[in-house]
Design a protein around this nucleic acid. Structure first.
Lengths: 245, 245
DNA sequence: GCAAAAGTGTTATGAATACACCCATGT
DNA sequence: ACATGGGTGTATTCATAACACTTTTGC
């Protein structure tokens, strides 16, 4: 394995994590902190996406997976390359320049941006060596480089895709309730959905398999649990050509 | 303007052109030809997408527009960045290596791929200095590099997008008939559409404006001409959140 | 028994589908 | 007059949208 970095090409990963408890769609960010030599002045104190240079003999998808594994330890997650960002000035605001002095960045780096889907709980951020932290997509902190834009474009893509493909289930635990799915759609899309209509629609999907199991440890009527069967989905999937313009 | 090339980053352009007469969705390709020094053996004789290195202080979108203008003379076309291709071996089959010797390529180049939409007629390919030629999307020639894959992925994206956004009109002349639109959908999607249902649907769109004009020079009943009003479309556009999984 | 969320049914409306013939024009 | 594609209407089916109350459980 040749681990020589390509100096001007990177991947950046927007990690979306959904928290079923708080019904919050979150983004995982890492801390960027730099003090002046004299330790008197804070030069940079904000957050960025996780990312890294692509290696010389590494495919882009593999770079993204590597970066994600390095941060979270997780593999085999849903991953989507959604856009390349290459504005000549994307790394050149004041704080970014300070930061880059400190690192080994080429000033004109283009980055291939990916997003990942997982459950917030699956990442243990305690004592994470990158000081990783979850932030609600609706309450992002100050971000370095062009990472705010990257996150927002990832989010747009997610909003579109979740209406067309069953990627929503990547954000939920293996066993979930119909209301979990509704809450998730409502969080992602920032809309209200009628519960009765939504239930009817989902319960009719063959690929949503009701389990012989109900919620436990809740102080209310425990809900029916379901799982998503990708097998059944793939078997039943029929492209429709509905023109919706 | 700094025209220094970035040696390992390029853009490639999939140029889709629709020909209303032949009802053919075409791709514009340029010739790649190389003989051995002795002029006895043809080493490379195939086609590739138009593309070029990104310049050091140039945005990716601008690179794509520049490349397209260089080939066709056209500007202000519909353009979409749809994917980055960066497999370490994407340029390393036998013929590609021969070709690269001849050019100034970095073996590990990643390319940001765009597609453009226009009318086949708008490009004059006579005496084009790149020997550009149109090929039906259904009958592509032998292609260099990974350009076949790039074209097919662009085509997939186009098939999806044309159902969701009014980009279809980028492929049609300013004045078109309802049947032109139907033919175009049928060409892109390779499906048959019921004419009566399709007409009803389209005629009800406010953004399709009937003109006080009919086809001329046809030896049959001349059809009503329409235009697409982007203004009206934008004004009327309402995001719908139909979950279609 | 009370709080909390799960779960349920009906009606109305609009869109998609399926389907076959007459019409207007140029030659 | 004829060949060619333009243009039209209806009935059925299906999905969505709107809407309020009862049920089940843990405490």
């Amino acid at each position: 394995m040749n681990n020589k970095k390509i100096s001007n090409i990177s991947v950046d990963c927007v990690v979306f994590g959904y928290d079923t408890e708080t019904k919050s769609l979150n983004v995982l960010l890492i801390k960027r902190y730099l003090e002046s030599k004299s330790e008197k002045k804070i030069l940079v104190d904000d957050y960025v996406l996780t990312g890294y240079h692509v290696y010389e003999n590494e495919a882009l998808d593999d770079s993204a997976s590597r970066v994600l594994k390095e941060l979270t330890g997780l593999t085999n997650l849903y991953k989507k390359q959604f856009k390349a960002f290459g504005d000549p000035n994307r790394l050149t605001n004041e704080k970014d320049l300070l930061w880059i002095q400190n690192e080994e960045f080429n000033l004109r780096t283009i980055t291939i941006a990916y997003y990942f889907l997982l459950k917030t709980d699956d990442v243990s951020i305690e004592n994470n060596k990158y000081q990783a932290q979850w932030f609600s997509i609706n309450d992002l902190p100050e971000l370095g480089f062009d990472h705010k834009q990257i996150i927002l474009e990832a989010y747009e893509d997610l909003k579109t895709k979740c209406l067309q493909e069953p990627i929503i289930f990547e954000l939920l635990p293996d066993k979930f309730t119909i209301n979990d799915v509704q809450d998730l759609y409502q969080s992602i899309l920032a809309i209200e959905i009628d519960n009765r209509n939504f239930r009817r629609k989902l319960i009719n999907k063959k690929y949503l398999v009701p389990l012989d199991e109900k919620q436990v440890g809740v102080s209310k009527k425990p809900a029916q649990l379901y799982m998503f069967s990708k097998d059944i989905y793939n078997k039943m999937f029929q492209k429709n050509y509905l023109i919706n313009i």
